[in-house]
Amino acid sequence: MDGPFLNVAWYALVGALLAGYAVLDGFDLGVGALHLLARRDTERRVFLNAIGPFWDGNQVWLVTGGGALFAAFPDVYATVFSGFYTAFILLLFMLIFRGVSIHVRSLRPGPRWRTAWDVAFSGSSVLGSFIIGVAMGNLAWGVPVAADFSYRGNLLHQLHPYALLTGFTVVALFMMHGAIFLVMKTDGELNARVRGWVRPTIIAFVLMYVLQTMATLLYLPRLAEPFRAHPWLFLAPLASLLAIANIPREMHRGRELAAFLSSSAAILLLLLILGLGMFPDLVHGNGPSGTSLTCFNASSSPLTLRTMMILALIGMPLVVGYTFHIYRVFRGKVKLDAMSY
């Protein structure tokens, strides 16, 4: 493994960790966004217990993605998190509230207690997804970076229309993903109602997706450059379109797992397209310095990249293995028992 190859491999690996986060935490964030649509107490408990065994492990993909970013691209870690200070502190608060509310919501019987935590859970899920989207939108749009890699914008810069649009797209995407997941985990009358939510969320997501694509092609043509230069890369957008189109098809046939996998594939492919379009930039700079943080100029030393790649190659297959096993253990419809949330 030589230098430049490792930098590219780490670009892909950090991307894979964040994509893993989007696919996995995506559905439980989506469940959170839909949570208040369930009116009855038991229904809300079913929702919480649908994601109960998974959400915590799902969130680790973000934490590990952050750690991997720190290890492989410390300058990106430093620039992004200090640059988007207020947004990320807010995201951290959302993640804290979310985890706590999932766990404590059903520990006391009072309706006011439960409603308060329901609102906290749902609100933090929506706002958390939105902030993640806004951050992605900013990275795609580009941010002002000085030659010393420090961020030169402010909070208002981060709230421009393209970033907000990306925020809404991510919320819609996760809601669709979460609704399909809930169809797999519920039964009876609740299942019938949840099934009814899938269509509107698909429509909302597809509208956002079209808008997002139009805005990207109009305002960020550089993201399309790699696809013009290497036409075979167009297979990725094509595949994403097929994956999205396949979701209503599988739902219609009553194959929820296939629909969920299609939705997961769509998320992975959309992030792949973003990654291909941005390569080699991790933070695209649009400031006067002309500096961008790339996987080459903002990386750790070759020794660190190599050592950490070896550790990741040992560790991640194990993680994927037992995560798959744990998902299998908890497959099927939710049944509430004494140990449930």
């Binding site: 590990t64 720190f70 290890a71 492989a72 410390p74 750790s300 660190t304 550790l311 560790g315």
Partner: peptide, 13 residues
């Protein structure tokens, strides 16, 4: 970061 980031990533993995 070149040194300190490694253990943090390993902690996640």
């Amino acid at each position: 970061g070149d040194i300190f980031g490694g253990p943090l990533a390993a902690e996640g993995i």
